[in-house]
Design a protein around this nucleic acid. Structure first.
Lengths: 228, 228
DNA sequence: CTTTTCTGTTACCAATTTGTTCCCGAATTG
DNA sequence: CAATTCGGGAACAAATTGGTAACAGAAAAG
């Protein structure tokens, strides 16, 4: 499957142009005309990259960028008009991976997109999460406890890797439900996450009744701790 | 999208002048000739700043200002005639963010407007709010006191981050209620805010009985102080 | 076709949080 | 100076959340 890119841009002509450029390069491109629509799309589907215009109407670009960064780890490229937003940019208070000022050179833009995507791919490929005795090899989908392989079921592994992908961050059961099971709303979803966490703990925690790896923060969610 | 400013001013010539000044600066300006109309507009649309004349007919400026502050967290700049309202002003008994006496220097006025707006923007962009030993990380939804993590409940955190998002400015309990709980009208709402503030203080104040971080301004609301 | 494993469901308990109520003192109003 | 409103505080009740075990249907393995 092709890499997917989301463009958040209100000016139709620019959006069209970028869409054309990227589609031509072999990417799957979606366009959202507002920040809100973009966020909704990001919640529903998964993208490898977001191209975000800073000067959006209604919800401003910075807010959108921050929200994206809070909810996922998708890389973001900011589009900005040099004259209008230069002060904002110089503040560097954006969590974006790169930014491009309008008008931009098409070739350069394509190059930057490619660069970021390949960087992310690289990181993803060589990822191995280690917490004390626990080793999660995202590449081989393998989990080791003190050198011994732990056999996790597909769902258990999916849940663990979801926590591992944002190690140290708290993830709500709603997000886990969506990422692992794919459902948004599901009567018994809460319970399912709860039980699966429990099963996971039985397999990877030295003492499941006093977990040290998978911790809970009341009312907020679960996290894979960074170190013991 | 441009920043939006609402002018509440009955004297047409002054209103026109200010509108011209601000539009020229690139703001989107709306004008209301009475306090009532202004309040209605504020309920319907959203503004980044309000310029309010103190000496309005019918509903007087102070009342309007108080009502605004009860309903929203928009910053307000007061316009006053030095001779008429000086006594009121000197008392500082207004919850406004700034005030300007008529007649005023145009450049100075523009500067003040810009200053307040940029202050709001700056706080919005900040992902970490620091007051002495208290650190609020808006990204990770984490609060530290002297380096140690404080575990806040979801509602407590929500309340604190609401105060932090307008650090240094007073927020009425009505606004807090709306922002944190989502309710507009709720019998026990006032109490709830009170109790939650109390619980928050127990967790982040060195001496909860003599708070230094979360302060109250009588009859107006609470604020997270800027520095100790 | 049977056995095992995985997944989803339910029920219950304990801990924690959230909502409510009542009381008191201080500030404000008339 | 009384009456009222506001803020601080404690204590109790209701609702949520998280941990646990047990059970049954579905899927996979033998």
């Amino acid at each position: 499957m092709n890499q997917r890119i989301l463009i958040i841009e209100d000016e139709t002509d620019i959006a069209d142009m970028i869409e054309y450029l990227l589609t031509d390069e072999g990417y799957d491109v979606s366009v959202a005309e507002t920040g809100e629509k973009g966020l909704v799309l990001l919640d529903k589907e998964s993208f490898n990259l977001v191209v975000l215009d800073l000067s959006l109407p209604a919800m401003d670009g910075l807010t959108v960028c921050n929200t994206i960064k809070q909810r996922s780890s998708v890389p973001v490229i900011i589009l900005s008009a040099r004259d209008r937003d230069s002060d904002v940019i110089s503040g560097l208070e954006i969590g974006a991976e790169d930014y491009v000022t309008k008008p931009f050179n098409h070739r350069e833009f394509i190059l930057r997109v490619g660069k970021i995507l390949s960087r992310v791919q690289k990181i993803k490929r060589q990822k191995e999460i280690v917490v004390s005795d626990l080793v999660i090899n995202m590449d081989r989908e393998e989990v080791l406890m003190g050198g011994n392989q732990v056999s996790l079921t597909p769902i258990e592994y999916s849940l663990l890797s979801c926590l591992a992908s944002r190690q140290g961050w708290v993830i709500s059961w709603q997000v886990l439900l969506k990422q692992v099971w794919g459902h948004e709303d599901w009567e018994g979803g809460r319970e399912m996450v709860k039980v699966t966490i429990q099963r996971l703990r039985k397999k990877i925690e030295p003492d499941p009744h006093h977990p040290v790896y998978i911790l809970n923060e009341w009312g907020r969610g679960y996290k894979l701790c960074k170190s013991l």
